[in-house]
Design a protein around this nucleic acid. Structure first.
Lengths: 225, 225
DNA sequence: CAATTTTATTAATTGAATGTTAAATGCGAT
DNA sequence: ATCGCATTTAACATTCAATTAATAAAATTG
């Protein structure tokens, strides 16, 4: 099994922090995505499905705690590790951060090595969790190469099919409503007479096997196994 | 829900710290074991298999880092969460702690609420991994997966049955009138000659067992565990 | 205890949601 | 522009949840 790169998202308005994080974590084999706007970071994360998000708690447009809560309420992102990295060292701020579901709260300024150690400790736990064999069920997506793996087979999918697959697989067994699917994969509102989701589901079932995507009539679809 | 108690081991020479930890974590549903000697703590832990060990890094007889390394090299304890709780705030000490496999490094002194938040964040991650829903007994709905759990059984229900079940289970033992049921699940006014609720009740009883939904003649239905 | 009302049960019917295929359209690369 | 593929639309088929219908059983009432 090709070990997947760890995906890290950083959200911070200060570009010097981007540089700090890049440098501190350079020895991790990770793919990093940098954002200055929390809104954009959150939106892009829905598709990136990062393993770890590092962000400041203080942002001009959207509070980090809100962003954190958003992550936790999204089925496909609720397992994402979240670490706050901020100058805010007030008790209530830390407590609010942890209450919102944060996994660590690191104070600025911070030595690169300490920062690296903490992040590595987080990821170490995470890996234990994801390497747990019961979680790995044959089918996985490789966003970097834009393919879906099924055992040793590599399945090439067109964009929409890939995004749809990616969404469903992001929260196995969760039922995604047609609305959810449409807004996540296509964006915007769906008109009811639209059979385009069905057609894409059909093609996915053709390619990955008929038994993986179950339909829940009147609600939507869910991915299994 | 029968949830297994979290097992916590504290190793600290200072008895006031024992008290601090006991107080700070009292709202966790945990079973705590206190030790002043790291040797004893380590030995007893081999039998206890705690979920979390909190310890000072500085001990007269054995260094915390060594203890930590011991845990990590023991097959049965390598999944145990380890948090250092210490006054040693030198960089090299923290780094050594994390290198030895620690999951968090909390500095003394520390506010009880912050301490609690950090420990809870650790356990939150951990529980995701270990909490197995198999132990659950009773009936509950899982709207995300659109299933009803009965013990370890997962019951699939069509939409209306699911919504009806969801309504009844939302207020166990409350009697729902037919009118209430109709307006909540179907919407609008019910016409009296309508037997559709009865049929749905029948199907639910078939699927979740005959004894959970009681008829209150002339009024409606109520759900009991 | 009959008469009446209410609920139970089963089977048949209906209908909306989804499945399926093919054709039309869009769209990027050359 | 044109080719090749991705995506959407359209038309028709199928499925299965939801309802209705019909009959039986149980509870309530006088």
């Amino acid at each position: 099994m090709t070990r997947q790169k760890i995906k890290i998202v950083l959200i911070d308005e200060d570009l010097r922090i981007h540089e700090f994080v890049r440098q501190s974590l350079r020895s991790l084999n990770s793919e990093m995505h940098f954002f200055t706007s929390p809104k954009e970071g959150l939106e892009r994360s829905r598709h990136l499905s990062p393993n770890l998000v590092i962000m400041d708690i203080l942002n001009s447009e959207m509070d980090g705690v809100e962003v954190c809560a958003e992550f936790r309420s999204s089925a496909s992102l609720k397992d994402t590790l979240i670490a706050f990295f901020t100058t805010r060292n007030e008790d209530y701020s830390q407590i609010a951060g942890f209450n919102a579901g944060a996994d660590d709260y690191i104070l600025k300024p911070c030595r690169p090595l300490i920062f690296y150690s903490r992040i590595r400790a987080l990821l170490r736990r995470f890996k234990l969790r994801t390497e747990n064999p019961e979680r790995f069920h044959g089918i996985a997506i490789d966003r970097e190469r834009y393919i879906v793996r099924k055992g040793s087979e590599e399945i090439l999918l067109p964009r929409k099919e890939f995004e749809l697959m990616s969404l469903l697989i992001g929260a196995p067994r969760k039922v995604f409503t047609r609305k959810e699917i449409y807004s996540e994969v296509w964006g915007g509102e769906m008109d009811l007479s639209n059979r385009t989701i069905d057609v894409h589901i059909r093609k996915l079932r053709e390619k990955i096997g008929e038994n993986h995507i179950k339909t829940v009539k009147g609600i939507g679809y869910r991915f299994e196994r």
